[in-house]
Simulated scan of single mutants.
Amino acid sequence: MGNKNKYFAKAHEVARKDVERAFGVLQSRFAIVRGAARMWDTETLGDIMKACVIMQNMIVEDEGVVDPTERFDYGGQNVEPSHENNGTFDEFIETHKRIRDKEIHIQLKEDLIEHL
């Protein structure tokens, strides 16, 4: 491996660790980042991530100081994404369809109005 390749590999490793650490902080602070992303289109995912980064920056700015030893409920800097089995993709799609069902939505809305 040439010097350029070694340098690139090292730079890539450092950048990857920074990204993983930053993503871990976002996962720790914002539940929406921890959850499944399958239901979101790429544009919406981008908006979610931008919003979380903006809110994180606002939190850091408000606190005035970044505490490198701060830990969060979900593991702090080095949070690993959850790869636990959350059901099959077909189950996910079926649940999503039920959530988006217009008749069920109308019925739930009417039930809520009646309850109130």
Score class of each variant (00 low, 15 high):
36 A>E: 13
43 E>P: 00
25 V>A: 04
54 I>T: 11
45 L>A: 11
80 E>W: 01
75 G>Y: 06
115 H>M: 06
67 D>W: 02
12 H>Q: 08
6 K>E: 08
94 E>L: 05
69 T>W: 02
14 V>S: 01
51 A>M: 10
103 E>V: 12
71 R>E: 14
27 Q>W: 04
87 G>A: 10
12 H>V: 10
100 R>V: 09
100 R>Y: 07
39 M>G: 11
20 E>Q: 07
37 A>S: 15
39 M>I: 09
67 D>N: 14
86 N>I: 14
37 A>N: 08
11 A>S: 06
68 P>Q: 07
94 E>V: 04
93 I>A: 08
60 V>E: 13
56 Q>A: 09
53 V>D: 00
46 G>R: 07
25 V>N: 04
55 M>E: 15
18 D>P: 00
57 N>Y: 11
82 S>A: 15
27 Q>P: 00
78 N>V: 07
115 H>N: 01
78 N>M: 14
21 R>V: 10
28 S>F: 01
84 E>H: 12
23 F>H: 05
26 L>G: 04
4 K>V: 00
46 G>Q: 08
44 T>I: 11
3 N>R: 11
114 E>I: 00
1 M>K: 13
30 F>S: 01
67 D>Y: 02
76 G>V: 04
87 G>W: 11
10 K>Q: 14
66 V>W: 14
37 A>V: 08
28 S>G: 15
107 Q>H: 04
96 H>P: 00
8 F>T: 10
81 P>K: 09
36 A>S: 15
71 R>I: 11
86 N>S: 13
81 P>V: 06
4 K>F: 01
93 I>Y: 07
88 T>L: 06
22 A>I: 12
20 E>M: 07
26 L>D: 05
55 M>T: 14
51 A>W: 11
47 D>A: 14
40 W>F: 15
